[in-house]
Amino acid sequence: MKLVLACTAVVLLLSAVELARPMRRRKNSIAQIYRAANITPVPEQILQVNFGGIKVTPGLEVAPEDAVDLPTIGFDFIPGCYYTFLAYNSNYSISFLSPSIVGLYVNLNGDMLADSSAIATWLGPSPSPGTGINRYILNVYKQSGLIDTTDEQLLSYQIDRLRFPIDDFVATYGLSGPVAGTFFLSQYPVFASEDCL
């Protein structure tokens, strides 16, 4: 009987160790993915992003025409807390104008972008011809409270999307994180090679 109990205890212990392992791997894999892509800061979790039927995984190439509409997002959020969603092109075609805002939404109470305040409405990726692959980073930050959406500086981001000061923005509005994030790649579409013309 003692042997059976001991064997059961060992199996349960090994199961607990195995169940804990993927969580550790997942945290390490996020850091590894971001380190390999040379992106900082590293989010706490991967942001789930969908453009219609396209599920974005970190580093996936998405055609500009497939990401025209505002994506749906998902992440582990704390009910009652507010969040900011920021999407930007980290390597805009003119490097000194990077990063450029693709979309900025504040006061998310959960993960529904449609129920938030649009500061800079979603434009979708629009890489310029000849710029190669552009990297689009999508992050969610936790807010310390509601953000005043009548703030003139905040409202100016609908027009002033270039050279967006991410670190200053995070500090000014008391954001922490990113609590969730992902990135995708996009390039100017090449519809036909010169051989076909």
Rank of each mutant, 00 (worst) to 15 (best):
C7L: 15
C7Y: 12
T8R: 12
A9K: 08
V10Q: 06
V11L: 15
L12A: 12
L14V: 14
L14R: 08
S15W: 12
S15L: 15
A16N: 15
A16E: 11
V17Y: 13
V17K: 04
V17F: 14
E18K: 14
L19P: 04
L19C: 10
L19V: 12
R21V: 11
R21Y: 15
R21H: 13
M23V: 14
M23F: 15
R25I: 12
K27H: 12
K27I: 13
N28Q: 11
N28W: 09
N28E: 10
S29M: 11
I30H: 12
I30S: 05
I30R: 13
I30C: 07
I33K: 10
Y34Q: 06
Y34E: 06
R35V: 02
R35W: 00
R35N: 10
A36E: 13
A36C: 05
I39K: 03
T40E: 14
P41G: 13
V42S: 06
V42F: 08
V42P: 12
P43M: 10
P43L: 10
P43I: 09
E44R: 12
I46H: 09
L47R: 01
Q48F: 06
V49H: 00
F51M: 00
G52R: 07
G52H: 07
G53C: 00
I54M: 00
I54D: 00
K55V: 12
T57V: 11
G59Q: 02
G59I: 06
G59E: 03
L60V: 05
L60W: 02
L60C: 01
E61L: 06
A63D: 09
P64E: 08
D66F: 01
D66V: 01
A67S: 06
V68C: 03
D69A: 06
D69N: 07
T72A: 08
T72Y: 04
D76S: 14
D76F: 11
D76Y: 11
F77E: 06
F77Y: 15
F77M: 05
P79V: 11
G80M: 13
G80A: 11
T84K: 09
T84G: 09
F85P: 03
F85H: 08
F85N: 02
F85I: 07
L86A: 09
L86N: 05
Y88V: 07
Y88Q: 07
S90P: 03
Y92F: 15
S93E: 08
S93Y: 15
S95L: 11
S95H: 11
S95E: 13
F96C: 00
F96T: 05
L97Y: 07
L97Q: 15
L97P: 01
L97T: 03
P99Y: 09
P99L: 10
P99E: 10
S100K: 09
I101M: 08
I101Y: 06
V102E: 02
V102Q: 02
G103N: 05
G103P: 02
L104A: 02
Y105P: 00
Y105A: 08
V106Q: 08
L108W: 05
L108V: 01
N109S: 10
N109H: 05
N109L: 03
G110R: 01
D111S: 10
D111I: 02
D111H: 13
M112C: 03
A114I: 04
D115M: 06
D115G: 00
S116W: 04
S116C: 01
S116I: 01
S117H: 03
S117L: 00
A118K: 01
I119A: 03
I119H: 00
A120V: 07
T121R: 08
G124V: 02
G124L: 04
S126V: 03
P127Q: 08
P127T: 10
P127K: 09
G130P: 10
T131L: 06
